[in-house]
């Protein structure tokens, strides 16, 4: 397995405040990597550095083989992103959203048509193709947003708390989509507050006060902390935090 995300002592400080301190980890191709941490632990900062939105203060990192300092434009072509906020245009229809997001990644009309048909089929939304997104239930929107974020076939997709506010059944369906994408070789980098979701990941890292306090598979972590659920592991670590959550 070759790693698609490699970081080495990746650090970001804002003035005196060290938001992310010497992060060193690797994520393999096709892996589902859970990125956990309390609010204010530095998850978003780390993720933004990896997406090329934020220039690191020091350390090294490559995404899909490209350097986060010099090759952010190339990185942008290789990654997908779905934010914690709902991120489709609700005044556009389902197919218009797919067409727009595929279009800005430079796909041509033929590719967009094929992709649209494929996505609608996968999500079983054919009958809703001309429905405005605002009229869809939240769970559908979330699934559509995920599908749109990987419509341009990225190597890696970053999901920032993708399932916030969604009911457990829909969350489960959402994770089916994630597994499906991972099976096709897409690397999934996901932040979440739900510990049941942490269990679904191949490996999880837990950030506390800007540093990675633990990184292993859920089963190994549970063994290490002598417990049978991720919740205890998380509390054990997060309790040590000195920083206030924002």
């Amino acid at each position: 397995m070759q790693p698609v995300i490699i970081t080495d002592k990746l650090t970001k400080h804002f003035g005196n405040f060290i938001a992310a301190n010497e992060l060193t980890f690797e994520v393999d191709k096709g892996e589902i990597f859970g990125f956990l941490g309390a609010n204010g632990a530095g998850k978003t900062t780390a993720m933004r550095m990896l997406c090329g939105l934020l220039t690191p203060s020091s350390g090294k990192a490559t995404i899909a083989g490209f350097d986060v300092y010099k090759e952010t434009e190339k990185i942008k072509r290789k990654i997908g992103y779905m934010s914690q906020k709902f991120s489709l245009y609700d005044d556009l229809t389902v197919s218009e959203n797919i067409r727009f997001y595929s279009g800005i990644y430079g796909m041509n009309n033929q590719q967009i048509r094929t992709k649209t048909a494929e996505l609608l089929d996968e999500l079983q939304l054919q009958s809703e193709a001309k429905t405005l997104v605002r009229e869809l239930p939240l769970g559908w929107k979330q699934k559509l947003a995920f599908s749109v974020s990987i419509a341009h076939d990225p190597d890696i997709v970053f999901l920032d708390e993708p399932t916030g506010g969604v009911d457990p059944v829909t969350r489960r369906q959402f994770w089916d989509l994630i597994y499906h994408a991972a099976d096709k070789g897409v690397t999934i980098f996901v932040t979440t507050h739900y510990m049941d979701e942490a269990e679904y990941c191949n490996r999880v890292s837990i950030m506390v006060d800007g540093v990675i306090a633990a990184l292993d598979s859920p089963s190994n972590l549970k063994k290490q902390y002598a417990t049978d659920n991720m919740e205890d592991v998380f509390y054990e670590l997060a309790r040590k935090a000195k920083r206030k959550a924002d």
């Binding site: 939105l53 942008k76 072509r77 997908g80 992103y81 991120s87 800005i104 990644y105 970053f158």
Partner: peptide, 8 residues
């Protein structure tokens, strides 16, 4: 955010 992460 999505737009900023895209190559656009």
């Amino acid at each position: 955010e999505i737009l900023l992460v895209s190559p656009f």
